Structure formats: C-alpha cells, structure tokens
Simulated scan of single mutants.
Amino acid sequence: MWVSHRAGPADEPPTPEQMHHWHRRMSPPENEFPAGVGLTALIGRTDEAAVGITQIEAYSTGFQFTLAVRLRQARPNRARGGLFMLISSHAHPGIEIPLEDRLLLGIEYSDGRRASTLKNMRMLGPAAMADGGQLVLVGQGGGGGEQSVHQTYWVSPLPPEGPVTFVLAWPAFGMPESRTVLHAAVIRAAADRTQQLWPPQPAVQSAEPPPPPRPTSGWFAEPPD
C-alpha cells in the first residue's frame, strides 16, 4: 500500500511511532482476524445500474466493506477498465474524469464526523492522524469487468453509537444524492468478536537499495555532489 511519508510542515521524516499509528489508521490490523457483520445494503438502483455494500467486516480499529456495482448492459465508452475508473478513489495520471461521471461515496457518523472519496486521506501524511479521531475512508483493492466492478474500503475508527450514514451520488447513471443508514451497534458488536492472532508487530524498515553500478571511467564514473 502506498502512503505519503510527509510528517509535517517542515517535511521532517515521521517517527516510528507516527508510522505505526498511520498504518493502524490506514489499513486493517494484520494481527487480527475480522468478524463478519452479516449485513448487505443496496444503496442505489435504477433500471440500468445498481450499487450496493457487501462483505462488511469489523476489526478492533475500524471496519471494511466492499462497494459492488452492477450494470444491466455494458457501455462501449466504459470498456477496458473504464467502469472501474468511475468508482475508484485513486487518481489516474493522464486521465481526466468529469465530476458528474464519478461515483461519489461518503460516510457520516452520528457525532458529525464525515469522510468521502473526494479526499485522498493517504496524501495527508502521518502527522495529520495525530489526534486519532479523524474519520478515515480509504480505498483498498478492487477490479472487475464491463458490467460488474467492486472496490474495497477501509473505515477507521469504529463508529460511535447511533446511525452510520452512507451517502451516494452518481448522476451519470441516474442516481442523485441519497442516504442509506445502518446501525453502529451491529458493527460494534462484530468488533467485539474480532480475534487477535498475536500482538502487533513492529514495522519493518526497508533497507535502502544499493546504487546502480557506475562505469570505471568517463563522465558517469563520478557521482554527483
């Protein structure tokens, strides 16, 4: 998983503690086995397309779900991965996707905290997670074909008691802004069933790769200052 290593305004490298906290916020804990919530929800539907939430799994630090998209018929202008680009929260270099074509997804907790796919949380850097309370919504893996695609999302922290509101808007496919409410109690109850496999392990710092070999003579033989 790619992450920004910006630690703050001074661009100081993040501390090991910041990086550990960052990874715990940006992805499911690797030392836990999740518990299934047992819910699915169809959050948007027309005669030609449908959007739903499946495979909700809870951890001690948040929950994960899969956004599933289905089209009645393939659209020629969305062939070869074009449909997935509309739902992916990742930027695609050299490809400009109009806002009205994109599937927009957001989450709001009962205490007013909100997050959406319009903001790439990974770009904020470890220092932005210092308070531990900011709601995080980040895309994980995904894929699919011309009529069916999916995208997994990670949400952290766990929701407080009350409603968990999923907000969807996809004007290009006839879906105006709408809200679907789930109850935090079922997610929190599943989190209590999470199994810790072993204590959290310290992050392994990757060794700096060695420089490529240089010619023994000529301009390229001398390294730059």
Results as ranks from 00 to 15, higher is better:
3 V>A: 10
5 H>N: 10
12 E>V: 09
15 T>M: 00
19 M>D: 04
22 W>Y: 14
22 W>V: 01
25 R>C: 05
26 M>I: 12
28 P>M: 11
30 E>M: 07
33 F>E: 14
34 P>W: 11
34 P>M: 03
34 P>A: 11
36 G>I: 00
36 G>L: 12
37 V>S: 03
39 L>F: 09
40 T>M: 07
42 L>C: 12
42 L>N: 09
42 L>K: 05
42 L>Q: 08
43 I>H: 03
43 I>T: 07
44 G>N: 02
46 T>F: 02
47 D>E: 15
48 E>R: 12
48 E>Y: 07
54 T>G: 06
55 Q>K: 09
56 I>T: 07
56 I>C: 01
58 A>K: 04
61 T>H: 13
61 T>L: 14
65 F>Y: 13
67 L>A: 06
67 L>I: 10
68 A>V: 10
69 V>G: 10
69 V>A: 12
73 Q>M: 06
74 A>Y: 01
75 R>L: 14
78 R>F: 14
80 R>S: 04
81 G>Y: 12
83 L>I: 06
85 M>E: 13
90 H>M: 10
92 H>S: 03
92 H>G: 05
94 G>L: 08
96 E>R: 12
98 P>G: 02
98 P>E: 07
100 E>W: 14
101 D>K: 09
102 R>N: 06
103 L>I: 03
104 L>C: 01
105 L>G: 00
107 I>V: 15
109 Y>C: 00
110 S>M: 08
111 D>W: 10
113 R>M: 11
113 R>G: 04
115 A>H: 08
116 S>H: 10
117 T>G: 07
117 T>V: 12
121 M>C: 04
123 M>Q: 07
125 G>L: 03
125 G>F: 06
126 P>W: 05
127 A>Y: 00
127 A>C: 02
131 D>Q: 01
134 Q>W: 03
135 L>V: 15
135 L>R: 15
136 V>A: 10
137 L>T: 14
137 L>A: 15
138 V>H: 12
144 G>I: 10
144 G>R: 09
144 G>A: 10
149 V>D: 13
150 H>Q: 13
151 Q>Y: 11
153 Y>V: 14
156 S>E: 06
156 S>K: 11
157 P>V: 15
164 V>T: 03
164 V>P: 01
165 T>H: 00
166 F>Y: 09
167 V>H: 13
168 L>Y: 05
170 W>Q: 02
170 W>M: 02
171 P>L: 09
174 G>T: 01
175 M>S: 05
176 P>M: 08
177 E>I: 03
178 S>P: 00
181 V>Q: 05
182 L>M: 04
182 L>T: 04
184 A>E: 10
185 A>Q: 13
185 A>R: 09
187 I>E: 04
189 A>P: 02
190 A>Q: 07
192 D>Y: 02
196 Q>V: 12
196 Q>L: 13
197 L>C: 11
205 Q>C: 02
211 P>H: 03
211 P>W: 01
212 P>M: 09
213 P>M: 04
213 P>C: 06
215 P>C: 06
215 P>L: 07
215 P>W: 05
216 T>E: 06
217 S>I: 05
220 F>Y: 15
220 F>M: 14
223 P>Y: 05
224 P>R: 06
